[in-house]
Design a protein around this nucleic acid. Structure first.
Lengths: 216, 216
DNA sequence: CCAAAAGTGTTTCACGTACACCCATGC
DNA sequence: GCATGGGTGTACGTGAAACACTTTTGG
């Protein structure tokens, strides 16, 4: 089981990597992962690994793809079920590195050479994120609970790899009626402070049942 | 490895099932499947099973999902990688039943009680098909090489579970410029014969590279 | 001649898209 | 006062959706 952990910070989409201490690929960076135990489901294994390797709990997690190329691990035949996770980097104050292992966040556009076929898994995960962010409100999983519209827009621009028009973006996203103004505004910014919103997940689930579809 | 094999015939979306000869779930219907060998990739295993259990070769095949619930097989822990396949039932004259095993096609809306968690896998496969048929030209994998527009439309109606407007459908699909009139018409029909078209896969691949996206 | 499906255009409306300026705040 | 991003409305064009009748063929 391997997991692509995405985070958004500093206006940049990042992925968590771990530096291998053992052969093969000793010293290389790799996706966090581990073995699935006999007494846990695949999803449980993914959540456990996330907690163990990053201290992250309660994050968005979704199965991505299963890779079973014969020689992907030079030692022996290993099939891996890949997951991807979306975590709120800002505010949660994640400790990327734990215990013995060396872990760090890298911008998805500037990733070192990875062990095994992990680059391909990462590519696939980003592709999935890029596709899904349009029709499911998963972008909010990467932002803090309260966010400014410009932050949300920038996140979308990074995920979709395209520039969006500010007024059209605001019209569309506010038009869905799924953002609630908190009444609060940004602090400690060197310019006019933006209003902060939060995503109304309850309302989303309700109107989704009635056939509403998120689309951006 | 398990495989959901879809076929389209008689105006109806069908799935191939196999009747189990062994415990557990002896006598129940189940998805065709088998074990992945150490010297083959997952995709290869899926293709091999397809050939062995249905004599089908050269079909559309895609990985669906991996299920690893602990008790999904009452005997022991079994993780299965599910695939789904789209086959051209008409014309290919598929032999659904082979050798020893009892195999048959069932309408997806009228499936018997299935072994293991195969119903859930089938549901997931149908959901995927339903979603993907809109933005990738996979519907053609279910039709014979030459088809009438009304057949294509009906296939879409079955996959999407909604009725489509004839004129709008024709406008849109012909407007893409991806259907080639063969000059032939239907035979042996008790009414005016429809023109037959084929899908221009080469052209699709070309214009896809240039950013075109199929959408229906 | 009747049944059954093929084939064909136009109008309407909603939504996506393009686009530029003033405002509030911190320094 | 100036730099930085926040916030706002309109006009236009494209594309989706609704909609009904004539044509062809076999039986």
């Amino acid at each position: 089981m391997d997991c692509v952990v995405f985070g958004y910070d500093d206006g940049d989409l990042k992925v968590m990597l771990i530096q291998r201490k053992l052969k093969p690929f000793k010293g290389n960076w790799a996706l966090p992962g581990g073995s699935v135990r006999l007494d846990e489901t695949l999803d449980e294994a993914a959540r456990r690994e996330l907690v163990e390797e990053s201290g992250l709990n309660n994050v968005y997690l979704e199965q991505l793809y299963t890779v079973g190329d014969i020689k992907r691990d030079p030692r022996e035949r290993v099939v891996t079920v890949a997951y991807y996770a979306l975590v709120k980097l800002v505010g949660h104050n994640v400790q990327a590195s734990t215990d013995a292992e060396n872990a760090a966040w890298f911008s998805v556009n500037d990733v070192p050479k990875l062990a095994f076929d992990h680059q391909r898994i990462l590519d696939k995960a980003f592709e999935r994120l890029k596709g899904k962010v349009r029709y499911e409100p998963i972008g909010f999983e990467l932002l803090p609970g309260k966010f400014a519209l410009s932050e949300l827009q920038h996140l979308y621009e990074v995920c979709l790899e395209e520039k969006l028009d500010k007024r059209n973006f605001r019209k569309k996203i506010l038009g869905m009626g799924l953002l609630i103004g908190t009444g609060e505004i940004q602090k400690d910014v060197a310019h006019r402070a933006a209003r902060l919103y939060r995503f109304d997940m309850k309302k989303y689930r309700q109107i989704k049942k009635r056939g509403f579809s998120f689309w951006l």
